[in-house]
Design a protein around this nucleic acid. Structure first.
Lengths: 154, 154
DNA sequence: CTTAATGCAAAAGGTTTGCAATGCA
DNA sequence: TGCATTGCAAACCTTTTGCATTAAG
């Protein structure tokens, strides 16, 4: 392992390079899927599929799953569980962030990893290395908390 | 970890009471399933099913799902996602705790909610109310971190 | 007696897999 | 050309749902 912490200028090159390193091949599907993740920011396999289908070539669902797996192994994408259903993928090119999901309205907000630093430190004292990018914090957002506390006025 | 305090007077009474409040009924299946969760500490619907099947009466899978849902609504159990697969349920009779899951060895450790208090406070400033009991922190435990850093000696 | 709860089977949602065809390298 | 990759279809696994039957209150 050894990814320098520079901000890669361009993922396409990264993709080609990392694939080659592993003796894997660069295919249009893989490029499309990676691009889809970057454009959608947060997307489930299904959303990726819908997105790439809107494009030129058609891609099969199993290819999406297999590709997402490869991309994650290459360290180009990551996933978290933002709902009880399908996982959500995002590009590692974005700044690392933690997700706060409102269980009432489903809204997802991103926070700076700094907010969880105390937790990371606390568990580090235990030898546990937290995977911040995979963290999903569930709860109730401001709007929904308010709605729940005060009976609807309308 | 063991429960420092004695097991709650008894959940059966709670179950009966809360069900009645809602006009719902107390059934042997519901009692069995709640008991299973308490005995197993952390269990997926499947594990609950296997557990209750070992008991006298046989319970159907759909009953397990429906019951888990009811029990959660009654506030007697909670669930988190400790793996990419099935959700894990636990009794609310236990002290609230956050889960730290090692993605390498799958080990689950419970921590005092205090470790995430800073995060809770940080998001609270934003009006976001964190559901601590639902929190699952993924990462690598001490043992697995060591194994990854140092090439296996044996 | 009423109707909530269960069991059963079928359906649905999401993901995986075997295999022949395809196409990077 | 050789082997990784894809498409397709079927298999899988977990969860949900409709409905007739059972049983709690």
């Amino acid at each position: 392992m050894s990814t320098p912490h520079e901000h890669p200028a361009n993922t396409s090159d990264d993709l080609a390079a990392r694939l080659r390193e592993q003796g894997l091949r660069l295919t249009p599907q893989r490029q499309l899927i990676l691009r889809a993740i970057e454009e959608l920011r947060h997307a489930t396999p299904d959303e990726v599929l819908a997105h790439v289908r809107g494009q030129v070539s058609s891609v099969n669902a199993s290819t999406v799953y297999r590709t997402l797996e490869v991309l994650e192994e290459l360290g180009l994408v990551r996933h978290t569980h933002l709902s009880d259903r399908a996982p959500t993928y995002h590009s590692t090119m974005e700044h690392e962030h933690v997700h706060a999901v409102c269980r009432t309205c489903q809204a997802v907000r991103s926070y700076d990893p700094a907010v969880v630093q105390p937790v990371v430190d606390a568990l580090a004292a235990d030898g546990f290395v937290v995977d911040v990018g995979h963290l999903a914090i569930f709860g109730t957002c401001a709007d929904c908390s308010a709605a729940a506390a005060v009976p609807p006025a309308t």
